[in-house]
Design a protein around this nucleic acid. Structure first.
Lengths: 336, 336
DNA sequence: GAGCTTTTTGCAAACGTTTGCTACGCTGCG
DNA sequence: CGCAGCGTAGCAAACGTTTGCAAAAAGCTC
């Protein structure tokens, strides 16, 4: 139904090899011939078959993007950066939501392998991607974004989580708070250890005790933050300030605090992590550590396409970039 | 480098046709043979080449998703619904951000055609998709989501915009407001006409005059809302309430009002459209008309895959679903 | 105008599948 | 024992390109 190169060849009375060369601006076809062929192609509204091309060239100009959930406000900007970067260089991107499930991550890996994507950028939730290395996905370039499996040999672009957490916690301490809690997601995040680490480092550095009572883990949802703080308040023993592993949790904490009739930051101060779009909203003014989401996505895809382009064997070529976090002080952490 | 069907055939001492049939559970291969072949395939960690398959079967099990901007909080949920629906039926989806630009929309159309996607779901910004029908994209199934070109013959799933706007405006009137403004995006939205229509209908129905002074168009950005309302306030002539074409604009209006030292809803009430995730946030409590984003995405992709599956010629088979909007009354529209 | 170079074109193989058709070997029946 | 019928398996074409190589045509030089 769609016109093919052969149809054009017939009309133009040349071999289809010539048509191919003409259309691809390859060296070796007379300008007039080229023009004539192009014109015919246009008239027949020819659309090159990327599938056939992909088969012979063994590349699809396509990459896969595997993230937990595009609906989580952290990811759209990352995705956008990736898509923009890919698009600029002629690549298309498959969007894959794992919904924080290992099984789905694995499944997508397989699917994308069958689709013969040229590369993958992954915001991993665990080590599965790395684990399947050496099998069929072993040969396809992967770069991690947002966080990376510990000790991976692949490229990645992440933020310095322990430093970010350190900055956040130190800020709280320096603002005069002493009993500082940590609320995190027990699952769905490779970064929790690092962020808790930074939190503890800051505490110790300032000579404060790390109290397990104020360290709570839940799920990676906004409700977690609310539930956890509410629980503490009801028990009558709650921190003056909390550092939440991410902004969604932090927002939850704020809701929880207010739901109990207390106020932020008067009764409990809070700082988050990520700087999702609404953190800066007038009514919220959440102090948080910023991740340059768009930028991270864009540079990640840049690394990936470089690896793809160079055809360089992945090993040894890995570029692991860790960005410096920036603390954005807004209102939820300012003492009365 | 990747094992092919022929490699397996060699190892199994059968023809590669047999391997194909064995792996695809096709009729006509002895169970033991099938098992043996499968085992060998597994050992060689064979991954079927979807490109080659796509070439012969003339379908890629792939669809394109064209939206303006995944970063706009309206779209992630739609996208998620689409991806979920696609994934359930074995399809992958290309994410394409047009950035509200016609040219990019057109460009993606072409690209996706070359990639031979089996179908497209598009949140259109104008009529270009429909316009290019009849050319190469004419034959590929398209369903619109969120809004659709007027008079299109294709399938779509949208919300009843005029009714939604009517509901919103009427609610404002019934709450006692009289001077009600409309703020919209002049570009980047097919739905603006409909929403303004609903707004006017409500006004007239209640015997209120439509004052052009209170109807302002800007860009599709949050800042627009703020700037517009600020301008009116500075001029000393501003509405008691405003209906914003979407939540982002509405949020902007709120910021603008507060930035001028006034309060919402005391000095100016506001209602939005879309019910983006943060509209319901404690600190915001934006009254708005809800679009069931996830659901819209999921049903849109359902329609698309039905069309694809049936191989039915698109014409005549179009299913155009328009959803009933629901007004969610929160705090930004409640008089003192 | 012969020989040589350079440009333009065509041939055909390859990419990795799916699938219609044919061929082979059995089984069972008459 | 001959043959129909069936269950398995193989052959080869097709899908629509790209590209190395060879052939043809054209342009130069002397």
């Amino acid at each position: 139904m769609n016109a093919t190169i052969k149809d054009i060849a017939k009309r133009a009375r040349v071999s289809y090899a010539t048509v191919s060369r003409a259309l691809n601006n390859k060296y070796g076809v007379r300008p007039e011939t080229r023009a004539r062929i192009r014109e015919i192609a246009r008239k027949m509204s020819y659309s090159p078959n990327g599938i056939a091309r992909g088969l012979v060239k063994r590349q699809t100009r396509t990459i896969g993007l595997i993230i937990p959930d595009i609906t989580n406000p952290f990811f759209p900007e990352v995705a956008r950066g990736i898509e923009d970067g890919a698009q600029e260089r002629g690549y298309s991107v498959f969007l894959c939501n794992t919904n924080w499930e290992d099984a789905r991550e694995r499944q997508y890996l397989e699917l994308l392998a069958e689709k013969r994507v040229d590369g993958l950028v992954v915001a991993p939730i665990s080590n599965v991607v790395d684990a399947v290395r050496g099998r069929q996905y072993g040969s396809i370039p992967v770069v991690y974004v947002s966080n990376a499996p510990q000790g991976t040999a692949r490229s990645f672009v992440v933020i310095d989580n322990v430093r970010g957490a350190y900055l956040a916690t130190r800020h709280l301490i320096d603002s005069g708070y002493r009993r500082i809690g940590f609320i995190g997601a027990v699952e769905g995040s490779l970064s929790i250890d690092e962020r808790m680490e930074g939190y503890k480092v800051a505490l110790r550095e300032r000579g404060l005790a790390v109290s397990e009572r104020y360290i709570k883990l839940g799920h990676f949802r906004q409700e977690t933050g609310a539930a956890v703080i509410r629980g503490m308040i009801e028990e009558g023993d709650y921190p003056e300030a909390v550092f939440a592993e991410n902004d969604l949790l932090a927002l939850g904490v704020i809701q929880g605090v207010q739901g109990m009739g207390l106020a932020v930051p008067r009764d409990v101060a809070v700082v988050g992590f990520d700087d999702i779009p609404f953190a800066g909203f007038q009514e919220v003014q959440l102090t948080t550590v910023c991740q340059p989401k768009y930028h991270m996505g864009k540079t990640a895809v840049g690394l990936l396409l470089d690896e793809i382009g160079s055809g360089r064997p992945r090993s040894g070529a890995a570029r692991q970039v860790v960005l410096e976090p920036e603390l954005i002080v807004r209102k939820t952490s300012l003492p009365g």
